[in-house]
Design a binder for these strands. Structure first.
Lengths: 251, 251
DNA sequence: CGCTATTTTGACCAAGTTCAACCACGGTGG
DNA sequence: CCACCGTGGTTGAACTTGGTCAAAATAGCG
């Protein structure tokens, strides 16, 4: 019997959150942990390709990624798509919608993904009683802004080859920090169409660009995914300093 | 005798803040106003072209624009520049740096600009005692994120003509909301080099693109600036819905 | 095995870049 | 008053990057 596509019942208690154990994420104080545990109303597990949030909708929930990959994107009327960023474990989804009503971007699952679902109505309580968590929320929003800044620089001013190198090095480093590469296999689960829509290029040109990176032994394109062979090399090609982050907050 | 280039003494008390009077910005509660008034340590007035914050520096202050225009940008090692966003009255500058230490972008004055200077060390007090202001800070960060999302879509997926139309319509609408067009004159104080660095285009192609917009009677390029003749037309050309915002917070 | 999604390749085309002038305008100094 | 200079804007020609079209190769998957 097949598993249902989505489940909504509570599964991982925050007290045993596997992300909290990672060195990359900051610790909670006991009272914060208790609040967050209460803030969380359940989990949502969806398959790859499922749309989690839709641009223009108002019923925004607030989520944190517990496991898996997703991406944020916007579309123009004629179907042109721009991927804005990728979501990995520990990332918050739907803050914009929770604060300001209508979503102005969509979110889709890139792999099977599990999300912690939070009750947006309790955000007020959070701001009133947990200033450190409130600070963390602002921090998270500002961090996302930084990532977008770098993306904008990339798309606006880097060549196709530099852009691709930057994107892959960036995803690699972020995924590594979120402990997404448990085994020896270091693979990013995206198609070349995703890469194209992230970089603002056509698929054909993206393919040719990735091939060049492959010829230089920086990456290997696997089926529906990309193995990073030399992230130092990618960073050098992109002229990118890398992504330094000691410990970051999450909710 | 010429006025000094920068002054640091307190001039406009928050109680008489001209921005608070605008319908576009939200009201403060009395205790918030008192706190903010105390949070503000002075004003900084600089000439056009002055660099206000530098990428890589750590001495980040926190500012709000009181009057004038500025812009945020990043540069690559070889001098390629990408403008990320423009700052106008009511906009917060330096939040990223205040929360996370090192600035990862620079800010420059586009016109003579006056800034309210805040004491970044008091941010903790703000979060502990003024949850509504803390919420506003997150809101502001999330709003900036939205703007960057739309920018990314623009640069990644719109044609040069669409991009230019979007940028100018966007700046026009934001500036109008911040009451920057007091007189009859509706002019955005940027050079074509700024437009090029915002859109990710060369200056030559930018010039030709703007000329097309001029031929269609959507804009008129004045000396060191741009007059918007038909913002509806620009929005239509960009396929952009516009920028709906009732009332926004500011600090 | 047949189906669909994805990747790959080649030929041709178009948008945008680079190079190289040239113009307009507002100082500034002689 | 005028020559000179610097900034910003304008223009055309040659060139390059990346886009479009079309078709084939490849890889899961039921």
């Amino acid at each position: 019997m097949a598993a249902p596509k989505t489940r909504n019942n509570r599964q991982t208690p925050c007290e045993q959150c596997p992300l909290r154990a990672l060195p990359h994420f900051r610790e909670f104080k006991p009272d914060e942990l208790e609040f967050v545990s209460n803030f969380k109303t359940g989990e949502l597990a969806v398959d790859a390709g499922t749309t989690i949030l839709v641009e223009g909708s108002n019923s925004a929930h607030l989520f944190t990624v517990l496991s898996g990959w997703g991406f944020r994107y916007k579309m123009l009327d004629d179907g042109r798509r721009q991927i804005l960023n990728y979501m990995m474990p520990g990332d918050l989804i739907g803050l914009q919608g929770s604060l300001m009503g209508e979503m102005q971007h969509s979110v889709e699952a890139l792999s099977p993904i599990t999300l912690c679902v939070f009750e947006r109505d309790k955000l007020g309580v959070l701001y009133r009683n947990y200033p450190d968590l409130a600070y963390d929320l602002t921090w998270i929003a500002a961090q996302e802004e930084r990532i977008l800044d770098e993306n904008l620089l990339s798309i606006g001013r880097r060549s196709a080859l530099e852009r691709a190198a930057y994107l892959l090095a960036f995803l690699y480093q972020r995924a590594k920090a979120s402990n997404l590469f448990k085994g020896a296999r270091v693979s990013i689960p995206i198609t070349q169409q995703h890469v194209a829509d992230t970089l603002g290029l056509s698929i054909v040109h993206t393919n040719k660009t990735l091939k060049k990176l492959g010829e230089r032994k920086l990456i290997r394109w696997a089926d529906r995914g990309c193995d990073i062979l030399d992230d130092e090399g990618l960073m050098k090609m992109a002229g990118w300093e890398g992504y330094h982050e000691k410990s970051r907050p999450f909710i």
